[in-house]
């Protein structure tokens, strides 16, 4: 005797299709299931009924690869804070709930099919400068670069970003600022990241804009939905670095 649910799922055959919401009824859902396992149950049924199963992105199913997405009842990754969709469990829903499932919505994330979107724009932001230029073999001894524990700690908090894009999905401006700021902060706080610090931030922000993401207006929606709790402070740090870069140029 599990839960009975109504799902309203965005179905869109491909990028050219207009798409629509389609309702599905599900019965006998166990509270111990994960949200994606619940969708697996639906898809098994759809296949046997000769219908097209719902396409959704997922991979590790342990909250770290950043592949899963889904806007659940208007919130990216669903109602539980600091939790990816794949780690969201059905015990957070009630029998009889109507659950709306939509893809990430952003012009820079075109829909590929159903709930699957193209997030390669985020990779291109990294390509613009989200790295330390340290060719293999050129490194000094690891102990030669001491890092104050507090800096290592703050850098780590930023480095935990999984690149899922929930920040973009939640932002009223569809801005990729938190994603960009997380990488700028991670590398900008470490001594290894200093030589490229100001060029990096300028290039990454320019790429972010070129991809068609919106601009940040400090609404804080991004950190509220971030499954890794990337702090808002990273955005402030990016702003500071960008202005310093502007002064220096």
């Amino acid at each position: 005797m599990g839960m009975k649910l109504t799902l309203k799922i965005w179905r869109q055959k491909d990028g050219a299709d207009k798409g629509r919401m389609v309702p599905y009824e599900l019965e006998d859902i166990s509270p111990d299931m994960s949200f994606l396992e619940m969708l697996d149950v639906l898809n098994e049924r759809l296949i046997l009924d000769g219908e097209d199963p719902v396409a959704f992105d997922h991979d590790c199913r342990e909250g770290i690869c950043g592949m899963c997405s889904l806007v659940i009842d208007g919130t990216p990754h669903g109602p539980q804070r600091a939790t990816t969709t794949c780690q969201l469990h059905m015990r957070h829903f009630q029998d009889g709930d109507v659950i709306t499932i939509e893809p990430w919505r952003a012009g820079a994330f075109p829909v590929i099919k159903d709930l699957v979107v193209d997030r390669t724009a985020l990779d291109r932001i990294i390509q613009a400068g989200g790295y330390v230029s340290a060719p293999t073999g050129s490194a000094p001894d690891a102990a030669a670069i001491p890092v104050p524990q507090a800096d290592a700690h703050d850098a780590f908090d930023a480095a935990t970003c999984i690149g899922c894009g929930a920040c973009v999905a939640a932002c009223p401006n569809a801005s990729a600022m938190l994603f960009t700021a997380a990488k700028v902060t991670h590398l900008g706080l470490l001594p290894q990241g200093q030589p490229e610090r100001y060029g990096r931030v300028t290039a990454m922000v320019a790429q972010m804009d070129a991809e068609g993401f919106g601009g940040c207006t400090n609404t804080g929606e991004c950190t509220a939905v971030c499954p890794k709790g990337i702090p808002f402070e990273t955005i402030t740090r990016l702003n500071a670095d960008l202005l310093t870069a502007a002064r220096r140029s």
Partner: peptide, 22 residues
């Protein structure tokens, strides 16, 4: 031995002691 050097140079935020060492 070289791997750790390489990763630190890339900015991998390994855990640190109070003195800033790995």
């Amino acid at each position: 031995v070289e791997i750790i050097d390489q990763c630190v140079a890339q900015g991998v935020p390994f855990a640190r002691e109070y003195g800033g060492l790995l």
